[in-house]
Amino acid sequence: MTTRQGVVLYGPPASGKDTVTTALTQLSTSYVQFARLKVGTGKSAGYRMGTAEQLRTLEVANGLIYANSRYGSTYVIDRPGLDDAFAAGVPVVHLGQVDGVRALVDSYEADWSVVLLWCPREVTEQRSAGRGDNDTAARLAAWDATRQDLDAHSDMIWDLTVDTTTVVPHEAARLIDQLLVRRAGAATA
């Protein structure tokens, strides 16, 4: 039996999670961005918009893997959504909390490659302003929270670390793809 592979991209806001995911999907159509369930308002692109009732139903059915609140909304990684993503290919899951990474890796059986994408705080500020975010201050607060999260979880082991200020997106995608190829080869050896 072939082990299913998935990718977790962890990093602060504007570290390149969306950009690197786009580069991965251009490199191979097998990569698919996992659309988290979002309960709240604001940006809907890239999310499956849901309701508080759906969230309660997932909780009761043991379908909730991880949820966090940020920017006035709740963002959910759910078992049914991951099942669908794996049916479509190799899911790429975006996270900004180490607890979320650990919950996913520990709760959903797959060979997860965990990648830290990083950029300095001032780069997050520049990128956020450059893409027209209306909530750059909140994104900088999230950058600070991510830095604190990393410091608090210094024992976290990353399969790959990419500084997105020095590695261009298509090269980051190539490195991630090579990581998955090596892991698949090791699993069959």
Rank of each mutant, 00 (worst) to 15 (best):
V168E: 12
V93H: 10
T161A: 15
G96D: 15
G89I: 14
A152R: 14
T164L: 02
E125L: 05
T161P: 09
A137V: 07
D144L: 04
T124G: 03
S113K: 04
L160Y: 07
V101Y: 00
D155E: 12
D149W: 07
R139E: 13
A87T: 00
G132C: 09
G130C: 09
R121L: 13
S128I: 04
W118N: 12
G96W: 11
V101S: 02
Q97K: 06
R102C: 03
Y108G: 12
A103M: 01
D111C: 02
V167Q: 00
Q97P: 00
Y108A: 11
A145P: 07
R127L: 03
V115Q: 03
G96P: 11
D159T: 02
V101Q: 00
T166Q: 15
P91C: 03
D99F: 00
D149E: 14
V105H: 01
V162C: 04
V115C: 05
A129G: 13
W118T: 15
S113W: 05
Y108R: 00
D144A: 08
T146M: 06
V114R: 09
A110Y: 08
H94W: 12
D133T: 03
D135H: 14
A152M: 12
V168M: 09
A110M: 05
L104H: 09
V90I: 15
G89C: 09
H153L: 13
D144H: 07
V105I: 14
Q97E: 15
